[in-house]
């Protein structure tokens, strides 16, 4: 039980990078970008094929980021210069990427079996003391211990670094203009910002993050598959929505940490749901849809109930005063 939760947290943090990318387009830019399903695989495919061809894992991961950035920029250009509706430009790019990804990988699946990855390299230099320390905790509560802590600890550092970079970026002069582009385009244009370029940049950065997430997932799972991105956008959205519902979105810093939390919570919920007897692995997409619906509807219901309670209390208080008089 504890071990499978550990696995959920582990993959949750990696998908959190993708969710941050989705946050950037959906929430900051107000651009519903569906490129994600394709660019996730692009990241995975570029990283995998580079590693197989002898590129060092770190460089391969950087190449994946660049590929994702380019894919996102093209979606942005389709929308701004081609004047194609935002949703449609994303969809067009997504299906085009399916073929492009096949070309990149040269086959539907690329295996990384017995190839070096970022994580295998890290494990080589990882001090054994850390693992045995944490495993001691697991064993103390009577659970089997995970194979390694390297992924979870390393990824926490990476994700937090990306979070703080994103927070900083969104507060720079360019970042402010980017946010205003999603908030009030007419206004920011009147303050001499080129909204077209900002949209291209924003969607590019978003998909760079998505591709990074894909590249890391491929290196952990040991393969890249052309269909591994299907439904990725919904998972990203689910993370954003769950995070905002649970942890709030008052400031940028809170919203980004909420998105990371949302990605992890999503994985945990899915893991727990799949342990229920009558649910099968194939039900995962349905579970995802259900989680998103709950995350969207529940806060509104709670809010309505709270309002109603407040009103009733106020009326009762007023009634008592009148009776007293």
């Amino acid at each position: 039980m504890l071990l499978s939760l550990f696995g959920a947290v582990e993959s949750g943090i990696i998908y959190a990078i993708m969710a941050l990318g989705v946050y950037l387009t959906f929430r900051v830019l107000d651009f519903p970008d569906l490129t994600v399903d394709g660019s996730f695989v692009t990241g995975a495919g570029v990283a995998a094929i580079s590693i197989v061809n002898g590129v060092s894992p770190i460089v391969a991961t950087l190449l994946a980021i660049v590929a994702g950035f380019i894919a996102g920029c093209i979606t942005g250009l389709l929308h701004t210069k081609g004047k194609i509706n935002a949703l449609l430009s994303g969809i067009l790019m997504m299906i085009a990427l399916y073929s492009i990804n096949l070309r990149i990988m040269d086959s539907p699946t690329v295996s990384l079996h017995s190839q070096p990855t970022i994580f295998s390299q890290l494990r080589d230099i990882w001090p054994a003391g850390i693992d045995s320390f944490f495993n001691g905790i697991f064993e103390a509560v009577g659970s089997r211990a995970p194979a390694t802590w390297v992924i979870v600890i390393f990824m926490f550092v990476v994700v937090l670094a990306i979070k703080f970079l994103t927070d900083y970026f969104l507060k720079t002069e360019i970042g402010l203009a980017l946010r205003a582009t999603g908030d009030n385009q007419r206004m920011i244009r009147s303050f001499s910002a080129n909204t077209d370029n900002l949209i291209v940049l924003g969607v590019g950065i978003s998909n760079a993050m998505v591709a990074l997430s894909g590249a890391l997932i491929a290196q952990i799972g040991g393969f890249a598959d052309v269909s591994m991105g299907i439904g990725m956008i919904v998972i990203g959205l689910a993370s954003v929505i769950i995070g905002e519902a649970l942890f709030g979105k008052k400031t940028i810093a809170i919203a980004t940490i909420a998105v990371i939390g949302g990605a992890i919570v999503y994985r945990i919920v899915v893991t727990l749901a799949l342990r229920v007897d009558f649910l099968e692995t194939g039900d995962m997409k349905m579970i995802t849809a259900f989680i998103v619906i709950v995350a969207l509807v529940a806060p509104k219901l709670l809010q309505a109930r709270k309002e109603k309670k407040r009103r009733i209390q106020k009326r009762q208080a007023l009634g008592q005063v009148r009776e007293g008089a």
Binding site: Y168, F169, K171, T172, E173, I174, G175, L176, A177, F191, S192, A193
Partner: peptide, 11 residues
């Protein structure tokens, strides 16, 4: 920033 080039420094 209307009359300045926007940069990567805090706004």
């Amino acid at each position: 920033s209307r009359i300045r080039k926007r940069k990567l420094k805090p706004g």
